[in-house]
């Protein structure tokens, strides 16, 4: 009894958080895993009948004669989601890394101010941030107004409701998630290492590619994970900037719970997202171990 008490005292501090996380996150995830193997009810909900129909529906559809034929539309959406998320990660790296490197070089006060400036838009409402891009990109928006008045084009260029506009929205939303970890890695980087590289006849750029980037690798990895995960399940950007035409996994899932009312199918889709996330996390983790191991030598 005494040891139980000691155990309770030891773990008392973390218990409330763990109860909340298990009760309202892990348990719900387990439940949708179970639901994905049940039969849909007529008005949402499920009937207690085990079935793999939801998973079958991911890849096949019933044709007019009731036979199953392969249906690639979900796979296409999944592929598009991964593609858009990956391009967004790349965009964040290309945009964020130089900025992070620049900030890391500034004196301390300036550094803090710049970091604050980067985080402020991040804390403003996601919808508002995305909505502001509609104003800029639409046919009579700022960019097109500018292009027309500068006589660069006669008819407005189609910018909004493309995959490109979705990527822009995602990069804009998540680039702080990339900059902060890279900056953290670069800040720890000893300027003496670059001095050493330059001293040993490496050029400016050479010292960046052979010293700075390898040493900042953990920052790139962390940033990529932090950007990739929300991009993969994104809902707002494709809805608002993609005009609902470039369907992504997030919207597809949401639809099953709104109009579609097919909970098992929606659950199976959610599981599919989780599977993609897990695969990507594993790849990243293996990668990180490899580069981490290599750095020790």
């Amino acid at each position: 009894m005494k040891s139980l008490r000691a155990l309770l005292v030891t773990y008392a501090g973390v218990m409330p958080s763990m109860l909340m996380l298990v009760g309202f996150l892990v348990l719900p995830l387990a439940i949708i895993l179970v639901f994905s193997f049940l039969t849909p009810g007529p008005y949402g909900g499920v009937e207690p009948q085990v079935s793999v129909a939801a998973y079958v529906k991911l890849f096949f559809q019933k044709d007019l004669y009731g036979d199953l034929t392969f249906n690639s539309s979900v796979l296409e959406i999944a592929f598009r989601s991964v593609k858009i998320a990956a391009i967004s990660v790349l965009g964040c790296v290309l945009l964020g890394a130089p900025v992070a490197y620049y900030i890391a070089q500034q004196p301390k006060r300036r550094r803090n101010t710049l970091l604050l400036l980067i985080t402020i838009p991040f804390w403003t409402n996601l919808l508002i941030r995305t909505y502001s891009w509609i104003i800029i990109l639409r046919d009579n928006g700022l960019v097109n107004n500018f292009l027309i008045s500068a006589n660069l084009t006669e008819a407005p260029v189609k910018l909004l409701y493309t995959e490109g506009s979705v990527v822009i929205g995602l990069v804009y939303t998540y680039v702080p998630f990339m900059i902060l970890p890279i900056y953290a890695a670069l800040e720890r980087l000893d300027a003496g290492l670059i001095e050493a590289a330059r001293d040993l006849y490496a050029s400016k750029w050479r010292s960046v590619t052979s010293v700075v980037i390898p040493l900042a690798a953990p920052g790139f990895t962390a940033g990529s994970i932090l950007v990739f995960i929300p991009c993969l399940g994104t809902f707002v950007a494709p809805e608002l900037l993609g005009g609902g035409k470039h369907l992504m996994l997030g919207s597809l899932v949401q639809m099953q719970f709104a109009a579609g009312r097919n909970w098992p199918y929606g659950s199976a889709l959610a599981m599919m997202i989780m599977a993609v996330v897990l695969v990507c996390l594993t790849i990243f983790a293996l990668n990180a171990r490899k580069t981490g191991g290599g750095m020790q030598h």
């Binding site: 996150l25 719900p28 949708i32 929300p230």
Partner: peptide
């Protein structure tokens, strides 16, 4: 492990969290 658990909500796409919570509450 506890530290990792505290960060769990960051590792799950929000849409998944959202539908899981919805199903859980209605169940």
């Amino acid at each position: 492990a506890f530290h990792g658990a505290m960060l769990l909500p960051l590792m799950i796409p929000e849409i998944v969290t959202a539908v899981a919570t919805l199903i859980f509450f209605s169940t």
